[in-house]
């Protein structure tokens, strides 16, 4: 063992450990870690049935487009329907993008399991909500409009003016689905 061998071996071991450590820590933080839920002035309930063939597949409007406002805490009540693993994943933009997801919650594959996902959006825009396991079928849009009133006063649910009678699942809770 020459001196060069020993020194290069020590360097390789230390550099290998350090670089690998850096590489491990640079793992994408993507889901659930990029954003913080914004402050909210009011709450709103949205019920989603998780089914591999589509969100709310048994309703007349599967994969509904959901309209909501900024600074409203959206309380997603996600109900397992088909014994298959699902996630509720939300990312900004019109299409699915796992790496920019701000919310991703696993739904246990036992029918009837209810998972609550609470999130308040600070930025208006179009978001995509989907299931990582079934990205082809379980995907819908979530359109967030800016709230004109960002004070602590409660914004009435009816201000959006959607016809409640056209809503399918979840209408009694005041969620606003596209008709």
């Amino acid at each position: 063992m020459s001196r060069i061998t020993a020194i290069s071996l020590a360097l390789i071991l230390i550099l290998g450990a350090g670089l690998s450590f850096y590489f491990f820590l640079s793992v994408p933080q993507g889901i659930g870690a990029q954003g913080v839920s914004a402050s909210y002035n009011s709450t709103e309930l949205i019920v989603l049935y998780a089914n591999a063939q589509g969100w709310n597949y048994n309703s007349s409007h599967p994969n509904p487009t959901i309209y909501a406002k900024t600074h409203v805490l959206l309380e997603f009540k996600v109900i397992e329907q088909d014994n298959l693993p699902h996630t509720l994943t939300i990312n900004p933009g019109n299409s699915e993008n796992q790496n920019s997801a701000i919310v991703s919650v696993n739904i246990p594959p036992i029918t009837g399991t209810v998972v609550w996902v609470n999130w308040s959006f600070g930025q208006p825009g179009t978001y995509t909500y989907w299931c990582i396991v079934h990205p082809e079928t379980m995907v819908g849009l979530l359109i967030i409009n800016s709230s004109t009133n960002q004070t602590a006063s409660v914004v009435p649910n009816s201000i959006q003016g959607y016809q409640l009678s056209n809503l399918s699942i979840g209408n009694i809770y005041g969620a606003k689905f596209e008709t």
Partner: peptide, 10 residues
């Protein structure tokens, strides 16, 4: 030994 040092630092 290389794997030992990588895993040890972790």
């Amino acid at each position: 030994l290389l794997f030992f040092f990588i895993a040890g630092l972790a």
